[in-house]
Amino acid sequence: MIQQIYPSVTHPFQFELNKDFHFAAAHYIPAEAAGQCSQMHGHTYFANITIAGNELDETGFLVNFSLIKKLIHDRFDHTLLNNDSQFDQHDASRFPTSEIIARTICNLVQEYLDTTANRPACIQVFLRETPTSYVIFRPKAGVSYEC
């Protein structure tokens, strides 16, 4: 893994967890305006997920690192993202762009976190698509850290 400093999120929580992982996936943006990105191509995406909370679970974790990786890696690694139910070929707000992939990762992680007793929050997803291009998704300010 690349050791890297990520933009930080100001938050009121006592604990902050960051999980780095990567996954290889293909995608295309089904819009002529996307230029070359409208053709199927692949990336090795690098993600960092930031989770924060005040309460630890019964094992002393905010959340188990391996569960966060499993949620995303097992779902998206070596897939065509366009085929996943989270993305839609006819709705630009659900095309598999880096921005929307990052938002989707946040939503999937938060859905899981909402089922836990300590209910931490996914407060940032950093998603690198290429060595020179990345996006950051954070839940909207004032929305109680919901994605």
Rank of each mutant, 00 (worst) to 15 (best):
Y112M: 15
Y112L: 14
D84E: 10
P7E: 12
A31W: 06
S38Y: 03
L108Y: 10
P120D: 03
E55Y: 03
F76W: 15
Y112K: 14
D91P: 05
N107I: 12
S133W: 04
F76D: 01
Q86P: 00
A92C: 11
E146M: 08
T104M: 09
T132F: 12
E129H: 06
R94T: 07
S66D: 15
D74I: 13
Q36W: 03
T104E: 02
S144L: 04
R94Q: 15
T79E: 09
T115C: 03
F61K: 02
T44D: 08
T132V: 10
S98L: 07
L56T: 08
N64T: 11
H27V: 04
A117W: 01
G35N: 06
H43C: 02
H90A: 14
Y112E: 08
S8Y: 08
A33P: 00
F46M: 10
R94S: 12
P96V: 14
I68V: 15
L113D: 02
K69N: 02
N18P: 04
F21D: 06
A52Q: 12
P30L: 12
S66Y: 14
Q3C: 03
F87E: 10
A33R: 08
M40E: 11
V63Y: 01
D74S: 15
G60R: 04
P96C: 07
I5D: 15
N64K: 11
D20R: 11
H41C: 08
G60T: 03
F95G: 00
I105P: 01
V9N: 07
C106Q: 01
R103H: 12
K140G: 06
D114P: 01
M40K: 14
H22W: 04
G60E: 05
Y6M: 12
K140P: 04
I68S: 01
S93V: 00
R103K: 15
D114H: 04
E16Y: 03
K140E: 11
A117M: 13
Y145N: 05
F46T: 10
A25E: 05
C122G: 00
L113W: 00
L113Y: 00
I101M: 15
D84R: 09
R94V: 12
T50P: 06
F15Q: 06
L62H: 02
E58V: 08
M40W: 08
E111L: 13
D114R: 08
A117K: 15
V143M: 09
H43D: 05
Y112I: 12
Y145C: 02
S38F: 02
I105F: 11
D74V: 14
E146P: 00
T50V: 13
H90V: 11
A92F: 12
V109G: 11
H41P: 04
R128D: 02
R119Y: 01
F137N: 00
K69I: 09
L67A: 03
A24N: 11
L62F: 06
I29K: 09
A92Q: 13
I5N: 15
E32D: 05
G142Y: 05
A52E: 10
H22R: 09
G42A: 10
P96E: 04
M1I: 11
S38M: 10
S93P: 00
H73G: 00
D91S: 12
I72Y: 14
H43L: 06
T115H: 07
C106M: 13
P131E: 15
L108H: 13
T97M: 07
T79C: 07
P7I: 08
S66C: 03
L62W: 05
D57Q: 08
F76E: 01
F13P: 05
S38G: 07
V125Y: 09
Q39K: 10
L113C: 10
L67N: 15
N48W: 01
A26I: 03
D114Y: 03
